[in-house]
Design a protein around this nucleic acid. Sequence first.
DNA 1: CTAACTCCGACCTGATGAGTCTTATTTACA
DNA 2: TGTAAATAAGACTCATCAGGTCGGAGTTAG
Lengths: 134, 134
Amino acid sequence: MVRLSKRVEYGLIAIRHIATQRNEGIVTAKEIADCYQIPYELLAKVLQKLSRAGLITSHQGVRGGYALARNPNTISVSMIINAIEGSNMGIARCMTEGPESCDVFSVCTIKSPLSKVQANIIQAFDTMTLAQIV
Amino acid sequence: MVRLSKRVEYGLIAIRHIATQRNEGIVTAKEIADCYQIPYELLAKVLQKLSRAGLITSHQGVRGGYALARNPNTISVSMIINAIEGSNMGIARCMTEGPESCDVFSVCTIKSPLSKVQANIIQAFDTMTLAQIV
DNA sequence: CTAACTCCGACCTGATGAGTCTTATTTACA
DNA sequence: TGTAAATAAGACTCATCAGGTCGGAGTTAG
């Protein structure tokens, strides 16, 4: 299958929600979870990853929450996926983790055709910015 | 992640190998497994699926094996993936299994932007035929 | 100071994919 | 006709990972 994980789906929904808050609006994880019926704790972990990647900022304590860290135009969907999944986006393991990751690398006959498809996919995620999905 | 399964990788390698055999050449599963260092039993199961989908033909008994069932130009990569994975290709579950499969369907805000990316991906797999990767 | 609020990070669990094993069925050929 | 060669098909184990849970640490209002 060629499928996004739940974490990525939740991350996209969440960061989009944060981006739609005007004038430095801070949103709590609970608020987002309630709004979209997303499991709170799972969403929290996703938000933490987005925070560590510098896409959103976190504020602890009462009246804390999350806010967008930069302009929606400078955040691509790839960045969001990489932040959550760990930058190993690729349709085959050998394309992100090197030849050692695949024991048929030397005799594999489908690398080059597949790499074209992959380039296609990555470009699509790469050119789509957060601003476009708000 | 957006990754193909091992089964699909093996299936692509195998059907490509079969397609390169000239003049009705029949290839055994063992032959392919040896050639590419693929686990035999796993490969056998993949070949059975391709056979049931009508992409290759199987011949039992001594001197049996597999052969391509039709012209490589008429076999797309999507067909191969669907034969192996069961035609649920899509980057989100709700896009192949209907609204019931997703409990945030009604409030989900990322369906429409993602569906464009997905259309892009599917088209790439759809227009790439076996003939092109031989 | 303290209590409420919020993020943080380690832990647990169940589903799914990868791979193995065993047995049945079909077929060519000696 | 018997045997070896090949696919067919199911159950099984193991590893990985997505999904979900827990208690705790940090921060701020009052």
